[in-house]
């Protein structure tokens, strides 16, 4: 089911995408994709590796120019106003891209700094985030020596220091143990409750349940999109994993 142009484009949508495509040579990584994400929604992008999830995120964050199609993030056009988009979004890549030789604190100050926050502002934000992220206990440790779950929380902290209204998470739980993953999703839910729009990609099917709405991607196309409950009802199956395999196999 590929979405038509008829979807209403409302100003309450944090992200709007119409007929977005991206080709790399002959390979079509993202094929005519359309969707909307409401403000405060956790919108999940589900798909196997190479399904086009990361390419979509990169187009929405201004890292990659779309081949065709339109879209807006935070009200700004992704084809023309990507410089403006950058001030409105937080981005956490699948590799928790942090500086290994910097201490926890130094990473936070660096990423806060490039978003134009002053030192007092950053200190204030670290204190705020510390309540839920527990970063201060390892503040002076070098990032390289941190446990993976902690690195993941640090990467999240770096992405939300500047209080972005829209947060892009590209496979944020890769390689992290189940308890840390659970904890991480609780954090994401808290953020969404506070009004942050969360756009998240994953290939862990159990994580799909945390999303308000899911979009299942296969070979560059969106093959299904709805709330997890509605999708399960539609296919008369109890697990998203079974539905995913069913959709991909046919």
């Amino acid at each position: 089911m590929t979405n038509s142009n008829a979807l209403p484009s409302s100003s309450s949508h944090a992200v709007t995408v119409r007929n977005l495509s991206r080709q790399f040579g002959d390979f079509v990584a993202v094929d005519n994709v359309s969707f909307d994400v409401s403000q405060g929604e956790i919108f999940g992008f589900l798909g196997a590796n190479g399904a086009g999830k990361t390419t979509t995120i990169r187009m929405l964050t201004g890292l990659l120019q779309p081949s065709s199609g339109e879209g807006s993030v935070g009200g700004w056009d992704i084809n023309r106003e990507y410089e403006k988009i950058k001030t409105r979004i937080g981005y956490m890549s699948q590799r928790f891209s942090l500086y290994d030789d910097l201490k926890v604190r130094e990473n936070l100050f660096f990423f806060g700094g490039i978003y134009g926050l002053s030192r007092p502002q950053i200190i204030e934000r670290i204190a705020e985030l510390d309540i839920s992220l527990n970063l201060s206990q390892m503040e002076n440790r070098k990032t390289v020596s941190l446990p993976l779950g902690f690195k993941q929380r640090l990467a999240l902290a770096c992405a939300i220091l500047h209080k972005p209204p829209i947060l892009f998470l590209d496979e944020p739980t890769g390689g992290v143990d189940p308890i840390a993953r659970r904890y991480f999703w609780d954090l994401i839910s808290t953020l969404a409750d506070g009004g942050t729009t969360v756009f998240v990609t994953t290939h862990y099917m159990d994580e799909a349940e945390y999303c308000h709405r899911l979009s299942i991607m296969y070979k560059g196309r969106i093959v299904e999109m709805d709330s997890p409950a509605a999708i399960k009802k539609k296919y008369q199956m109890t697990s998203i994993q079974d539905i995913f395999i069913h959709l991909v196999d046919r």
Binding site: G62, S97, F111
Partner: peptide
Amino acid sequence: ETGTMEQILVSPI
């Protein structure tokens, strides 16, 4: 290589 460049490029810098 480490992906930090991408992290910098999504910032308003």
